[in-house]
Write a protein that binds this DNA or RNA. Structure first.
Lengths: 182, 182
DNA sequence: GTCTATAGATAGATAGAC
DNA sequence: GTCTATCTATCTATAGAC
């Protein structure tokens, strides 16, 4: 017994990972889920419904990926783990797709906020592990920096992007450490 | 005497600012430029050609906006100027559109790199003005942080975004200052 | 050289068959 | 309740008129 709805969502997630929001079309998703396009509209009456369903799944998946930072206790290790996530272009495409969707559809904005809050929470835990005072600014800084690194790496696709991101994150975490101890 | 080509590029820029890459369609652009859709294909045979033309103009425009940081000499003032740019959603949509286009069309990647390099150059000048050693990491950090702040603000659309971005940038610039003087 | 009518492809949504 | 044939809208590209 198959769960069609889940099949569709999984296929839609793959599409977001590979093609971003502009490639998020019913025909492509239907092909991936091995159902007919018109079949999608039974489970998800409109495109936005489908987008909301897949956003829910994408957020859970992204937060699970970010959970890799739990238990990290040195700035160097943290920089490496975050950089690894940031240069994974499939992740970045999903994030950008969610951001655009939130921008276009006010309905979906709450979902993106949930993602952002989840990341801030995890950033807070990480900073605690590193003995850095996890103020709002520090957490937000780390989040924004990671997002920016991911977007720039996706677009420039330069060699050594992973190392560059890692070094930049290392610099930031070192500065945060120094700034805290005084 | 009108310069049709320029009219079209201007209209296309407006579309990118308001709708992003997914809204970048020939009919919409043609309407904005007050010409027929099929007319566009005379000046720009394919969609990618048009995208390349408008990317060129968008980059010049974005770099001109970033030039607002020239002459700024205090961290607080710099934080404010950068935050002002970051929360201007029209700018962010253009940046994201260029990033996506670069991701999808290898042809356009070089254009995005040019934008990134231009921003890094300006970041370097800013840091010099602030008496912060403008290392590669510092410049890249500032760039990535700004991009991340912009994307997050676009997607969450939370109140007080401007102040939050400003505070975060202020924190970062303060840390950079402290980290440099030792 | 400049512009347009029209074709060809692909998207999303509906009404209705099983 | 599950699935499909089909319709309408919209997008890009071409061939050809002026």
């Amino acid at each position: 017994m198959k769960d069609r709805k889940q099949d569709i969502i999984n296929a839609a997630l793959v599409v977001l990972r590979e093609h971003g929001l502009s490639g998020f079309t019913q025909p492509r998703i239907a092909a991936g889920a091995a159902v007919r396009q018109s079949h999608l509209t039974y489970y998800f009456p409109t495109r936005v419904d489908l987008l909301a369903g897949v956003a829910r799944a994408a957020i859970d998946q992204e937060l699970a990926a970010v959970d890799a930072i739990v238990g990290v206790s040195s700035p160097q290790a943290a920089a490496k783990v975050i950089a690894d996530i940031a240069v994974r272009h499939e992740n970045t495409r999903v994030i950008m797709a969610l951001a655009q969707a939130a921008d276009q559809e006010p309905t979906l904005r709450e979902l993106f906020r949930e993602l952002a809050d989840g990341i801030i929470l995890r950033a807070s835990k990480l900073l605690e592990n590193l003995n850095i005072t996890p103020t709002d600014e520090h957490c937000f800084l780390l989040h924004a920096l990671s997002v920016g690194l991911a977007v720039i790496d996706l677009a420039t696709a330069r060699r050594g992007g992973q190392r560059r991101a890692e070094r930049t994150l290392g610099t930031a975490l070192t500065l945060l450490t120094k700034g805290t101890e005084k």
